[in-house]
Design a protein around this nucleic acid. Structure first.
Lengths: 345, 345
DNA sequence: TGTCACTACTCAATCGATTAAGCATACGAA
DNA sequence: TTCGTATGCTTAATCGATTGAGTAGTGACA
């Protein structure tokens, strides 16, 4: 078995020796600080480039200079993760921003919020991350006060009104609700059902409120508010239940794509034509929506851009760039693919 | 604006002061090494627990003790990532193993192999990771010799026969091909098409070879080998092309689920019944397969367990546990959901 | 000629954990 | 009594980058 000789990783001391100056001078030169002549600086930079020097994150972190690492904990059952396109796109968006600035993303998947908090504590104590993203914002979220107490720099991904004063990026769900309801109004729908997500999430409430208000404004009756667990089966069940009821709705708006898919299947399965007799709209768009027949109309967000915005904000928080203001970044756009039609008479 | 007072993160020095011993003694106690009396050790551990001490990864890394971090670079266009359930499940599997042992996962998404290699170099130079996972193994993979040269501990996710001597976890595609072909033989199929993935991937070749050999053994003619880019459109196109040809196959095996979905849609769209007139089988299973009508039969792997195996192996490599042997870990199981039927006469 | 200001450095301490080496103290054996 | 020697510590150096505190050397100016 051949012995591998790992190439030595160049340090500032090495560069100092080769340049004939002290380590301190090298540090000044490499960081663009005054204290070295232009000529020496040039020579040092040249040597650094030659030996392929990269600063040791460990040493910098130890000095208290930050770790150039941001953290994201995803609390989900591993199996569920596979089908949720949100996180991968979100992560990709984060990456685009932070990798360009030399930051890396530390990822952890935990099964419950308990261990999620534990992870934050350990990351902070061990100086593993400079800041974190908090997703899945819940009503009266227990995590926020604790994170605040720990003092961990954070950006909350969710509605700023519920972020407990912490900087947040949210999506403008009210605008999306308006767009959706306006379209449904144009199509003549008067009775619309809203099949929402789990009650504990902030965005579930925000969306329900927005739907109700938009309905009032446009003269549309939001006939039902159902909470689901986002599964296909829940969508199927909700659809059957609503269609079986007295005076069923002519359109259904679902808080995510899976439930909408379940509903379309349930409807067509019992002979209710989509969109002929029933219009269906999914709130979260994903590639899944294009795979069903008929392709699912959805309120589409640029999740990757959402992640990018969150990352930009967290970098500002971490670097203490003035005051960081919460924003509603992501705006959903209605993409009509074929499950929206005029209200049946 | 309230000033946040971040709680001080406890260090060994702090514990030493409170316990009335030196920092060295504390280190011995905390690491279970000899050098302190049982009584002192107990007292030190008690204090450490009280103040919630967590070792500073930065300090340990600086001493050369490793960073307790493993790295995964995913080379994909951000948009494509959302629909690929593989990586999220794989990551979840990795997490399950490594987080239990105090390791974290550093994730990077890059658009091309060039920057992937650049990331490896920087990670190693900056001592950011102790080891990496390499996925998407290609024929004559350019990354392997470079990674080998850098000396970065690695586990290759792919067929060990193509891992250039580096430790690898692969899936037993030959066994899967046998299972698939045996089932098709039972159903009386004599003419089967194999619609493969991009030619550059190792597993594309492995699968094609395995299909051909299994066909020979079972008296099944593998009538076509088509390479696709894994997209739905490619599956649709391949299906049409094959059905239009002289003497079309009675069954089609696809290297991934998206192309299979495209094919099912193409077939039913032109009046070819699935599975009545055409059987369809997807190699990679995903939640997508259960969403189509009819639900797609697939060769299903436990991707999460695959990730867990890779993680276990990488931890062994990193900790230098004896010699690490490559394995074929993941075995696909044929899940018949409704797109397999007897060959039409 | 003295001194003040400035440039371009070097020196040394620091961050937190680890570990080889050193140093008391106690105990047992000769 | 005295010499090992084992035990239980402490000391100090180390990893790599940073930075406040010096310190030579140069030039200007009164």
């Amino acid at each position: 078995m051949a012995m591998r000789k790992p190439p030595s990783r160049p340090t500032i001391a090495e560069i100092a020796k080769q340049s004939g100056v002290s380590a301190g001078a090298v540090s000044y030169a490499l960081n663009g600080r005054p204290g070295v002549s232009d000529e020496t600086r040039k020579r040092i930079l040249e040597v650094a480039r030659e030996v392929g020097w990269v600063p040791s994150t460990a040493a910098r972190a130890l000095r208290g200079g930050g770790t150039a690492t941001l953290g994201l904990v995803i609390t989900r059952e591993p199996d569920v993760l596979g089908i949720e396109p949100f996180f991968m796109s979100f992560v990709a968006g984060i990456e685009k921003v932070i990798s360009a600035r030399g930051y890396a993303l530390l990822l952890q998947v935990t099964p419950d919020p308990e261990r999620e908090l534990q992870t934050y504590r350990e990351w902070w104590s061990a100086r593993r991350v400079d800041g974190i993203f908090v997703t899945d914002l819940a009503i009266d979220d227990q995590r926020l006060p604790i994170i605040n107490e720990i003092g961990l720099p954070v950006v909350v991904v969710g509605d700023p009104a519920f972020s407990d004063g912490l900087p947040a990026v949210g999506s403008d769900d009210a605008a999306a609700a308006n767009a959706a309801m306006e379209r449904l109004a144009e199509l003549g729908h008067k009775r619309v059902a809203h099949i929402a997500g789990p009650e504990r999430f902030v965005h579930t409430h925000v969306r329900s409120d927005a739907m109700a208000r938009a309905g009032e404004r446009l003269g549309i009756q939001v006939v039902a508010e159902v909470n689901t667990d986002y599964s296909v089966a829940a969508g199927t069940a909700a659809c059957h239940q609503l269609l079986d009821g007295a005076n069923p709705p002519t359109a259904m708006v679902f808080d995510n794509d899976l439930t909408a898919i379940g509903a379309v299947r349930a409807a067509t399965g019992r002979g209710v034509e989509v969109p002929g007799q029933l219009s269906v709209l999914a709130w979260d768009d994903s590639p899944l929506c294009e795979l069903t027949v008929p392709a699912l109309s959805a309120l589409s967000r640029d999740v990757s851009a959402y992640g990018a915005d969150a990352a930009t904000m967290l970098l500002n928080v971490v670097n203490g760039s003035a005051e960081v203001k919460s924003v509603r970044s992501s705006v959903a756009r209605l993409v009509d693919r074929g499950t929206l039609g005029p209200a049946p008479r």
